[in-house]
Amino acid sequence: MNLTLHVWRQNSASDKGRMVRYEARDVNPDMSFLEMLDVVNEELILKGDNPIAFDHDCREGVCGSCGFMINGVAHGPSHGTAVCQLHMRHYKDGDVLFLEPWRARAFPVVKDLYVDRKALDRIIAAGGYISVSTGSAPDGNAILVPKDKSDRAMDAAACIGCGACVAACPNASAALFTGAKISHLGLLPQGQPERRQRALSMVAQAAAEGFGHCTNIGECEAVCPKEIKLEVIARMNRDFLKASWTSRQKPLAGSDG
């Protein structure tokens, strides 16, 4: 099949950027979307052009490196699938596709479809962990975790940090990402001691990074390749509200305050 691609090309963070049209010829339906771009890129390189930059690594849908908008949908049309596992059999001859990078102030464009998502790491650094230094752990079975809680924690922990939720959200909110980590750790007994502090710190960090707020509309849930549910945002809100009014701890030091 043959496709027409309109791809966002931007040389560097300071470049203004524009959409450029490309033709992808003889696309095999068994190719993955990224393999289709690989082929386009090889042609561009041989013609002396710059290949289209896009982040990718594992190509198994779990490292969270890949992701861009295809016709206005993060990771493209296939539900619960990162773009690296989207296959061309979902398209037909003559389709016109618009490829754009994730757009958010907190995700500056590095080049073309490649954005910098270190803001997500900083949200984790603010409190997305259980503080247990190596060596101080009790026996694994000393901590009993009910199976349903463990399963729900796993559902939330499946987040791959790709940023599609931010990209799809009309407010560029990282609530689904932040809520997923708060839910994963907050559901487990191991996560209880820091639960309130974690919610306060991570929520504050997400705002400081320039992500927007959540308006509970569910675009994030619809595009999440790991099908994380909006419920995690409610849990984050609950933990944050409780912590805001009841926590006796002072905010963590080592901050701007």
């Binding site: 259980i130 247990v132 009790p138 901590i143 199976k147 463990s150 191991q190």
Partner: peptide, 11 residues
């Protein structure tokens, strides 16, 4: 160590 960190192992 991993359990204490909150790794959601199967239960």
């Amino acid at each position: 160590q991993c359990t204490a960190q909150g790794v959601p192992f199967a239960r």
